[in-house]
Lab assay of single mutants.
Amino acid sequence: EVYKVKIKIERVLPNGEKVEEEITIEVEGMSEEELLALARELAAEPGVRIKEIEIEKLPP
């Protein structure tokens, strides 16, 4: 199964400015739980906050 994972994050820059970013990846052969863990890892940097995680199962 192939999933499209869209992660919206908010990053706080050293000057205090907040910037929103969106990361989209396609992943194959992982469960939804593994995808959530991967998304959290991607956003685990200091000053980064996850705003939204969207997981979509793509048709075969």
Rank of each mutant, 00 (worst) to 15 (best):
G16H: 04
I23P: 00
L58Q: 09
A44L: 14
V48M: 03
E26D: 07
K18Y: 13
S31C: 07
R40G: 07
V12E: 12
K51V: 14
I9A: 02
V27H: 04
G29N: 12
K18C: 09
E52Y: 10
G47Y: 04
E26K: 15
M30F: 08
V48D: 04
E34Y: 10
E1M: 13
V2C: 09
L13P: 01
I50D: 00
V12N: 07
I53G: 00
I23H: 05
E41Q: 11
L36P: 03
E45D: 15
K8T: 15
I9F: 07
A37V: 13
G47P: 01
E28V: 13
Y3V: 04
E32G: 06
E28T: 14
E56S: 09
K51Q: 08
N15H: 08
I9S: 01
R11N: 01
K57S: 08
G29R: 09
I23Q: 02
E52L: 07
K18I: 15
I23D: 00
E17C: 13
A39Y: 09
E28N: 05
I9C: 01
A43S: 13
E52M: 06
M30S: 11
E20C: 11
I23C: 11
A39C: 10
L58T: 06
I25G: 03
P46Y: 11
I25E: 01
E10N: 02
I9Q: 01
E56G: 04
K8P: 00
E45W: 10
E32K: 12
I23A: 02
E54K: 10
M30A: 15
I9D: 00
K6V: 07
L42Q: 05
L38V: 10
E21R: 05
G47N: 12
K4E: 03
I25W: 11
A44P: 03
P14V: 12
L42K: 03
I53N: 00
K51S: 05
I23V: 10
V2Y: 06
E52T: 13
P14L: 10
E34P: 03
P46C: 15
E26G: 05
E26S: 14
G16N: 03
K4H: 05
E33V: 15
E41Y: 10
K6N: 06
E10G: 01
V19K: 10
G47R: 01
L13F: 14
Y3K: 02
V5T: 00
E28C: 08
P14S: 11
A44Y: 05
M30D: 07
R11T: 03
I53C: 02
K4L: 12
E33H: 11
K4C: 03
I53K: 00
K18A: 06
E22W: 11
L38N: 03
K8Q: 09
A43V: 14
R11G: 01
P14C: 06
V27D: 02
I9R: 02
E54R: 14
I23E: 01
V5L: 14
K51P: 00
I55G: 00
V5D: 00
K57W: 09
P46R: 14
V19D: 04
N15C: 04
K4V: 11
E52K: 06
A39Q: 04
S31W: 11
E41S: 12
P60D: 10
R49T: 13
V5C: 12
K4W: 06
I7E: 00
G47F: 05
P59C: 15
I50E: 00
A37P: 02
E34H: 05
I53Q: 00
E28K: 08
E26M: 09
I7G: 00
L58F: 06
E34C: 10
R11C: 03
V2W: 13
E54A: 06
V12T: 15
L35Y: 06
L13E: 04
K57M: 08
L36C: 11
P60Q: 14
I7Y: 03
L58A: 12
I23L: 09
V5Y: 03
A39G: 03
E41D: 14
E21H: 04
I9K: 01
N15K: 02
Y3D: 01
E26P: 02
R11A: 01
R11P: 00
K6I: 15
M30T: 13
P46T: 09
G16M: 04
E33T: 13
V12K: 08
V19Q: 11
K18T: 13
G47H: 04
K57Y: 13
V5W: 03
E56V: 09
N15Y: 03
R40V: 11
K51M: 11
P60V: 10
A39E: 03
E1A: 15
N15P: 01
G16T: 01
V2N: 11
A44R: 07
G16V: 01
E33K: 06
G47L: 02
N15R: 02
V12S: 15
A44E: 07
P46H: 11
G29A: 08
G47D: 14
S31M: 10
V48E: 02
E20K: 02
E34K: 06
E33Y: 10
G29I: 07
P60K: 01
L38A: 07
I9P: 00
R40Y: 15
K18Q: 11
E10P: 00
L36N: 07
P46L: 08
E32S: 08
M30R: 14
I50F: 02
E32F: 07
R40K: 12
